[in-house]
Amino acid sequence: MKIEMQSENKILAKINKSVGALANPSSYDLVCHEHRLGEPLPSIDKLEKIVNMIREILFPGYFGNTSLRPNTIKHYMGVYVDELFELLSEQILAGLCFTCEKPEEVDFQERSRFAQGLASDFIEFLPEIRRKLVGDVETAFVGDPAAKSRAEVIFCYPAIRAISNYRIAHQLLLLGVPLIPRIIGEMAHSETGIDIHPKAQIGEAFTIDHGTGVVIGSTCIIGNNVKLYQGVTLGAKSFPLDEDGNPIKGVPRHPIVEDNVIIYAQATILGRITVGKNSIIGGNVWVTNNVPPNSKIVQFKAREASFADGAGI
């Protein structure tokens, strides 16, 4: 390959041409956010710090330097919660500012106080989030023979990290916090490969074994004591369109999974269907119709071979 030496003028001309093209409003009008001076922007780094701090509060002794001595733990909790309140208030405010359609009509100080109120509402719910996560950890520990301890589950299992982010994000979404819940959910998705939309409704004692490739859509409803394996998709089959041919937002389009259901690896369940309680969905199956309670859905060839061997499924 022949390398051509370029003159300084030619190099500057190419750079200036790119700058002009990049500054052309027609090239960025759909993806540009006009920022108001003085308003905070959402920060991935700060949100990561917030999630890590919440994890430290919810699982004391596992993350950070929280002391478990009875005479100091309340002090540590107070310090962490105070810092969490400040950071979370700022990021909630940033989300409110970022998504506001008419910022000139909103009083900034009033919006700031509103963000602080939402942050305090979330902190008030932290004990309940911990209670649910304790149930998730216990379910993962009891249900996995490879787990040596609850500590191993908390430290090592990607499902607990993803479910923790989900329960944090879901509560923020229920409080009406914009944008921030989705960012927190996508943090876990990037880190673990488990994609749980914060709008999904997930009951207690929930667990995901292995986890990579799991997708749970925004309008999913999942009951209590449900277990998923890697690669499970709870997705949408089709998208209703409006008169202009655009997808209609907010329509329930993902599955309902009732209590005590197990869904094995790579199963794909699509549409607003119901998987009845106490059912088992085998691996690599495609389900687009309602499944009655107490059902077992498996691939026909696998079932046939199993019965021929006298094993049953």
Rank of each mutant, 00 (worst) to 15 (best):
G282Q: 08
T66K: 03
R113W: 09
M5F: 15
Q201S: 15
S218E: 10
K2V: 11
E86I: 11
E191K: 10
T192M: 02
H197I: 14
N246C: 07
E86W: 13
A267K: 00
V134T: 15
L58Y: 03
L93R: 08
M53Y: 10
Y62C: 03
T192P: 02
A13T: 12
Y76C: 09
D195K: 03
F85N: 13
V232H: 03
R131C: 05
N290T: 09
D309V: 05
E56F: 03
I280K: 09
Q299W: 10
E34Q: 14
S306K: 05
L87K: 06
N52A: 12
V251R: 04
Y76P: 07
H170I: 07
R161L: 13
F85M: 14
V51Q: 07
V177I: 07
L37W: 13
A205D: 11
I168L: 10
E56M: 14
I3K: 10
P127H: 12
M53K: 12
L175R: 00
I216Y: 01
E128D: 13
N225L: 07
S164N: 06
I57L: 10
N52M: 11
Y76R: 08
V287Q: 03
V215P: 09
V79L: 13
Q171N: 11
F85P: 02
A119N: 04
V51P: 02
G213C: 13
I208G: 04
V137E: 03
A308S: 15
I3V: 13
Y76Q: 13
L84R: 02
